[in-house]
Amino acid sequence: MNDMQTMTAETRLSNDAAPKMTARDVSVYYGAKKAIDCVSIDVSQEHVTAFIGPSGCGKSTFLRTLNRMNDTIANARVDGAIELDGENIYAPSMDVVQLRARVGMVFQKPNPFPKSIYENVAYGPRIHGLAAGRSEMDAIVEQSLKRAGLWEEVKDRLQESGTALSGGQQQRLCIARAIAVEPEVILMDEPCSALDPIATAKIEELIHELRGRYAIVIVTHNMQQAARVSQRTAFFHLGNLVEYGETSEIFTNPRVERTKDYITGRYG
């Protein structure tokens, strides 16, 4: 196990024209504890990228560094460089509020605000001043809900509370909420772990449709899900990025022993 600490990730990818986000030697500390150790990874615009790995492996922590949500944790510290379109997101000139508008996030548990469905979706455009008037806002809300595949289900009750929806609908509402500010990247932190299989299927379908329009990064502990929705997969273990490649390759022909062990179910 000793070589693991020093090992760099096994990466085999055909070169992208320009990756949407790049991370170089990123380490994350909680106080004195190192949660992420020297991770380097590229996220492409065209593909859905899945982070897999056993729980506690740091995949969610790493995801949160991509839109600086770790800033809200008092003693968290991030080393290394993360760039969005070639711009360091931890640079002092980078504005975290704008960054988060460009890199949206969907959480593990659906967390709609205790407001109407309409207001949930309109929240982002409103705080960022993206709509010039009422009709424009209506259009944004409608478009976002349509893209999130929720419009048909809620168009007659937009003024009802977002918390009154079912779990799966709530999660799609959260996706609509994230879409409404036209982000460039959407981070999804185990978005289906609190949902039933039917709702999960709908979310997966949705991810499929959103692909290409947004760069999507999804963290999941469900390998079948990663295989279904993603084109690229990164395997994390104990704070390290172990292997990163085309999803089909990772699942059929992993190069690193640990990846194989995990995929074949030896541990997890």
Binding site: Q143, K146, E182
Partner: peptide, 10 residues
């Protein structure tokens, strides 16, 4: 389904 809505300028 997204094609029905007009695309927004970035």
């Amino acid at each position: 389904m997204s094609e029905t809505a007009s695309p927004r300028a970035p």
